[in-house]
């Protein structure tokens, strides 16, 4: 084929043949290269988090991708297709006007104050008068994970994006990445073991909190989440201990040390 190769002679057929395959090979290589460079670009421009959430969301099991309006009965069984980001959702305002079909009572012992807004990743947001917002783990989330051994909080100044990683917690080999409920800049850390974890300056705009749950809607969701937790725990041999209908203990992790906590926490905190 090349100089030094015995007995090869070029012919038009060879040129056509080899060109065709050269072309295909280059398309393949160019495709790979394009994907590679785009990846570099995405990582550098900080879009990695959003893209990663996009992929994660697609891979969430069906029961974890239910629309918020499915819990309160407005749209039973409806699946979210926007990554739990209702800020630009066209159908959200329509469903939001529908009356809740059934009354909701919060599971015994759980506290979900009306003053807070809740994110699907089991965090709460409390807007502060100074325009900042506090972020912490919600009651169910705190009971599931209990007292983390390690908490890795983002440095002040870090930009958070909705559903991106907010902070990491580790306990006894189980490790979760808590999804950020807000888009904004980290201003301060909360006290270790304190109520809140982060103080964030959210992005401006009236839709900044639209994707968060509140009030009865949040209670409906917590109900469903408690059920989900029961199912997750009951699919393991230790699950029977929970199914007594009583109040959830403060630290499930401690109460049921043999449960597959890595998996359960990942499921509860929307990790993939």
């Amino acid at each position: 084929m090349f100089p030094g190769v015995n007995g090869f002679h070029w012919s038009p057929v060879h040129i056509i043949f080899l060109s065709a395959f050269g072309l295909v090979l280059s398309v393949l290589l160019v495709t790979l290269a394009v994907a590679f460079f785009r990846t570099l670009r995405d990582v550098r421009s900080g879009r990695a988090g959003a893209i990663a959430w996009h992929c994660d969301f697609e891979d969430l099991p069906r029961q974890e991708r239910l629309c918020r309006h499915a819990f309160e009965g407005a749209a039973p069984g409806r699946l979210c297709d926007r990554g739990f980001d209702c800020r630009d959702c066209e159908t959200h305002p329509k469903f939001a006007t529908i009356e809740t079909r059934w009354p909701v009572t919060l599971p015994a012992g759980l506290e979900y104050p009306e003053t807070r807004l809740y994110h699907r990743g089991h965090t709460w947001v409390e807007p502060q008068p100074d325009g900042t917002a506090l972020i912490g783990l919600d009651d169910l989330g705190a009971r599931v994970f209990g007292a983390p051994e390690v908490v890795e909080l983002p440095a002040p100044g870090t930009k958070l994006s909705v559903n991106g990683a907010a902070w990491r917690m580790m306990r006894n080999g189980a490790s979760v990445s808590v999804r950020s409920p807000l888009e904004g800049e980290v201003i301060a850390h909360g006290a270790p073991g304190g109520q809140w974890q982060l103080r964030v300056k959210p992005e401006a705009g009236e839709r900044a909190f639209r994707h968060l749950l509140s009030g009865a809607e949040a209670h409906a969701w917590v109900n469903a989440e408690t059920d989900r937790l029961m199912i997750l725990l009951s699919s393991t041999p230790t699950g029977a201990a929970l199914a007594d209908g009583g109040a959830l203990v403060a630290d499930l992790h401690q109460a049921l040390p043999d449960a597959p906590w890595d998996e359960v926490s990942a499921a509860m905190f929307l990790n993939c």
Partner: peptide
Amino acid sequence: RQFRKIPSFLVFEWELHKLIPVLAGI
């Protein structure tokens, strides 16, 4: 699950997936 912990893998996957029709074509 394990590969996706490396964020660039997931991004690469996402970018590659967008180009899948090209691959399907060739």
